[in-house]
Write a protein that binds this DNA or RNA. Structure first.
Lengths: 150, 150
DNA sequence: CTACAAGCTCAAGTGAGCTTGAAGTCAAGC
DNA sequence: GCTTGACTTCAAGCTCACTTGAGCTTGTAG
């Protein structure tokens, strides 16, 4: 009934495993106070922070990127809705770029893969120049990364 | 000038590293004949196969999934454009789902993160029930996976 | 014939994002 | 006072998609 939550409570409410929360703390994405016992105690505000992390992950940001986004929040006071929306404002374009890539890929499915044109050179249309879209592992120098001089 | 390519040539033409090609062969996504020397020799058709793999990865399929897609190609003859397009036809919906999720996330940015409503429960709107969208690592039971009974 | 580039195999390493296990501490109920 | 469960730290393990390195062989140009 206190407004400080244990790690188990936060895990349950956020849907993020306790082990992941400790991991995030280790990576300095979240922080906790400690009870006399050494147990973690979280203010409710951590839930919003975690929601933000999960959101950002779904969009495709790495934990490192998320950390640097979070570092833009005011350290001295509780973030306002304006603070939060400032952070996420840049994401809209990121999302839009990813959507655009997916749409190009969708087009490429019929235009490239299906037809006889499939030279990889032409199919660089799959990803003209948006490095932002590089999410997850994949071929190292396929597109966007410096190509081996052909 | 032969129509059989060495691994180096395939790497150069496809933009996929030779080590990755060996890796794909090990995972049975592609195959090669061998010259008397034991060196790999690829028919040109492998380029299309590789393009397909790269494409599919960008869309978000795992190598395992791609392997099972490729296994649907006729083993006895060179795949026609119809064969290829049959494979990729199912992807359109997959792409559309991912796009839909990104659009929900974009909406959530302003609706959820910014405002006071950010209870994680409500923000399950971030991902109602599409498991297909689970691409890449992330919180294990956030959405779609069986939630811990609350 | 000699370099040297390119290929081979097999084992181990990488990095992201966690999970799991071991060994111990703390809090609550009986 | 004792058990049970939630918590602690730290180290090691796991998956995915590769890359790197060691040690050796093959192919090609001069």
């Amino acid at each position: 009934m206190n407004d400080l939550l244990t790690i188990g409570e936060v895990a349950k409410r956020s849907g993020v495993a306790a082990s992941a929360l400790r991991f995030y703390e280790d990576r300095e994405l979240i922080s906790s106070e400690r009870a006399g016992s050494g147990h973690r105690r979280y203010p409710r505000s951590v839930l919003r922070r975690i929601a933000f992390i999960v959101f950002a992950q779904r969009i495709g940001l790495s934990l490192e990127e998320i950390k640097s986004e979070l570092s833009k929040l005011p350290p001295d006071r509780a973030p306002t809705r304006t603070d939060w929306s400032r952070l996420s404002s840049g994401w809209t374009s990121r999302i839009d770029e990813r959507i655009a890539e997916l749409e190009r890929l969708r087009a490429g499915l019929t235009e490239c893969i299906g037809c006889g044109c499939l030279s990889l050179d032409r199919c660089r249309l799959a990803n003209p120049d948006d490095r932002a879209a590089r999410s997850g592992p994949g071929p190292r120098y396929w597109v966007g990364d410096p190509r081996p001089a052909s």
